[in-house]
């Protein structure tokens, strides 16, 4: 009898902990959604459950200012950055994982070191290069600078992935006299789709969320990306922060990400743990 009671207590405590973890993880996002549907004075009344439903904040964000433009900027910058990084990384990681040559360890070490770079350390130099190339305050400045973290990450993860593919799949192609380029495009690419999707998605999230470069290398509302636009959203006066609009903008840019992450859950977890580079 006492044993049963003890077992029940333990079970209840365990589920209480589980509930606590879920509530803490989800609540801020839930509260942002809740706030985004409030308007007027409702906004300044604390409530734990939905009390009103108004789309005013969404209308304000989408119709006033450059927010839709900022979303398009973010999509463009993140997509081009990822495609560029994947293109450079596929061939490079083939060389790094399937071919034995001197200096391979050194190159891999450099790549890992670059991925640990503090972005601030290259900020001054990058600013000069971007000014020199004449791409300051354009999306290209961001695509250019984001390569510093997307490229090492994609190369590292794809190298780990390719290294674990069996040699047999290559042997037949080598016997047939296929060139390395044919081997990559015909033999490896079909096998690598899952890895490419995962790596691409993680790099996309990284580029989508980047703030320091975007803040520094763009200067007008129309060229900003979403994180900078949200950070700099301001009201009529200095002290009047448009919380409703900020929450609506936050929900708009976060919902697609959350859906993507939940859909690709398993892949993302395996990609994060295999590459283990950044969070």
């Amino acid at each position: 009898m006492t044993m049963d009671l003890w077992a029940i207590t333990k079970r209840v405590a365990f589920y209480a902990l589980v509930l606590f973890i879920v509530v803490v993880a989800v609540f801020p996002f839930y509260y942002a959604i809740l706030t985004s549907f409030k308007s007027g004075t409702d906004l300044f009344r604390v409530s734990y459950w939905p009390t009103s439903f108004s789309l005013d904040n969404y209308a304000a964000v989408l119709n006033v200012g450059d927010f839709p433009r900022n979303v398009l900027n973010s999509i463009f910058v993140a997509s081009v950055t990822v495609l560029l990084a994947l293109f450079l990384a596929v061939t490079a990681s083939f060389a790094l994982s399937r071919v034995r040559f001197r200096g391979r360890g050194l190159i891999l070490m450099t790549i890992l070191a670059v991925s640990m770079f503090p972005q601030i350390a290259v900020l001054a130099g990058l600013f000069e290069v971007i000014r020199f190339l004449g791409i300051y305050n354009t999306p290209w400045a961001l695509i250019f600078s984001y390569t510093i973290f997307t490229l090492p990450f994609t190369v590292w993860v794809l190298t780990t992935f390719m290294r674990d593919l069996p040699i047999e799949i290559e042997e037949a192609a080598i016997v047939d006299g296929a060139t390395p380029w044919v081997i990559i495009t015909r033999v490896f690419m079909p096998l690598m789709w899952p890895a490419l999707v995962t790596t691409g998605l993680l790099a996309f999230i990284g580029a989508w969320n980047e703030f320091l470069f975007a803040l520094t290398f763009t200067s007008s509302n129309a060229t900003r990306t979403v994180p900078v636009a949200i950070a700099l959203l301001s009201g009529g006066t200095q002290h009047e922060i448009p919380w409703g609009a900020i929450m609506a903008a936050s929900v708009i840019v976060t919902v697609p990400l959350v859906i993507l992450v939940l859909v690709f859950q398993r892949k993302i977890i395996s990609g994060l743990t295999a590459g283990g580079v950044k969070g």
Partner: peptide, 13 residues
């Protein structure tokens, strides 16, 4: 799935 949500949300947001 729930604990992945904080990770998916951009830092600025």
């Amino acid at each position: 799935a729930a604990i992945l949500i904080p990770w998916a949300i951009p830092t600025i947001v």
